[in-house]
């Protein structure tokens, strides 16, 4: 399978690293739906450049989608997304608005801990130290 030339960031905040590894320093961030040019692929990692920004580095392939992710969808985009799946629509379908509506109808379902879980994450520095102390590879 050939690498698509352009891919879209499919995570909340994409991180572009200096080397193809999570140990690589973060050189830039790329927001959800940002399109990047893929220059090279290496064991699951893509070397990318960001059009219009003087940024190059590595992103893990799981953070990228071959589908174009459209932020501000026009009618044609919606039709295309619903029928062919060639593109994806950011913020459409199951989104925050739907979650809010669900929560309004299910007041006894509490999201406090979900928000708390998602807010706290270990830093790469902490993870690296943890791996080192436990004699693990990272």
């Amino acid at each position: 399978m050939s690498t698509p030339r352009t891919m879209s960031v499919q995570v909340k905040t994409g991180q572009i690293r200096s080397t193809p590894s999570f140990l690589g320093a973060i050189v830039a961030e790329a927001p959800y739906a940002q399109q990047v040019q893929v220059l090279e692929e290496k064991s699951g990692w893509m070397r990318v450049s960001v059009p219009g920004r003087n940024v190059q580095g590595w992103m893990h392939g799981s953070a990228l989608s071959a589908k174009r992710i459209v932020l501000q969808a026009g009618a044609d985009d919606v039709q295309k997304a619903a029928t062919t799946g060639e593109i994806a629509l950011a913020g459409k379908g199951f989104n925050k608005q739907v979650e809010d509506q669900y929560r309004a109808q299910n007041k006894d379902v509490d999201f406090t801990w979900i928000d708390r879980m998602q807010k706290s994450s270990a830093s790469m520095t902490q993870l690296r130290q943890f791996a080192k102390d436990g004699q693990l590879n990272m």
Binding site: Q10, Y32, A88, A90, G91, G93, F94, E99, Y102, F111
Partner: peptide, 12 residues
């Protein structure tokens, strides 16, 4: 199902 929608399904 986009990862964004997967995220909202997963939260609930």
């Amino acid at each position: 199902i986009t990862p964004e929608q997967e995220y909202y399904i997963g939260r609930t």
